[in-house]
């Protein structure tokens, strides 16, 4: 192994330190070493978005980020989305609108949708569809995912 590199990352608000192989992908560090298995791997080519997490508040595909590149950053995964008050509005809306079936794409989809709503709190359906173009789902046909994101946006905008 190449010489290990130390990383300091805040993961879901918790300070984490590790010595990692420079080639270790962020997604594998999260899953295999931190046990945060809510972030999934669905492809090899940065297409499917199942591995989407937030890096310093922005959505990224953690299969295409080295763990060493996250040094000094804040990472939020699906496990960090629920607050003390319960589910994030997107999580609640995905359930309410039946925005998931097998659930495998769901964490990445929710993380991508959260970035979408951060960037555009009141999107049109068209904007939601384009905002989720980096995330593949094979079960839902996207219909109810889009409904869920619009519902979450509405609840947030009203709130």
């Amino acid at each position: 192994m190449s010489s290990a590199v130390s990383v300091h990352v805040s993961v879901n608000g918790e300070a984490r330190e590790a010595e990692v192989d420079p080639r270790l992908l962020l997604v594998h560090w999260l899953r295999d070493e931190l046990g945060l298995t809510g972030t999934h791997v669905g492809c090899d080519t940065t297409n499917c978005g199942a591995c989407t997490v937030h890096l310093n508040g922005e959505s990224v595909k953690s299969c295409t980020v080295l763990a060493v590149q996250a040094d000094g950053a804040e990472v939020t995964t699906i496990e960090g989305m629920s607050g003390p008050d319960g589910l994030h509005p997107l999580q609640a809306a995905f359930r309410e609108k039946h925005g998931l079936q097998c659930g495998f794409c769901t964490p990445g989809m929710i993380m991508a949708a959260a970035d979408l709503l951060n960037r555009n709190p009141d999107p049109t359906e068209e904007e939601v569809r384009h905002g989720l173009e980096g995330n593949l789902c094979r079960c839902t046909g996207y219909h109810n995912i889009v409904q869920a994101v619009l519902t979450a946006a509405e609840s947030e905008v009203r709130a």
Binding site: T37, G38, H40, E79, M81, R95
Partner: peptide
């Protein structure tokens, strides 16, 4: 009726084969 499967899946607590170590 809303799904019984969802709470674990929307919170990252589902258990897929590759999650098992």
């Amino acid at each position: 009726i809303r799904r019984k499967e969802d709470p674990r899946m929307i919170s990252g607590r589902a258990n897929y084969t590759d999650d098992i170590s």
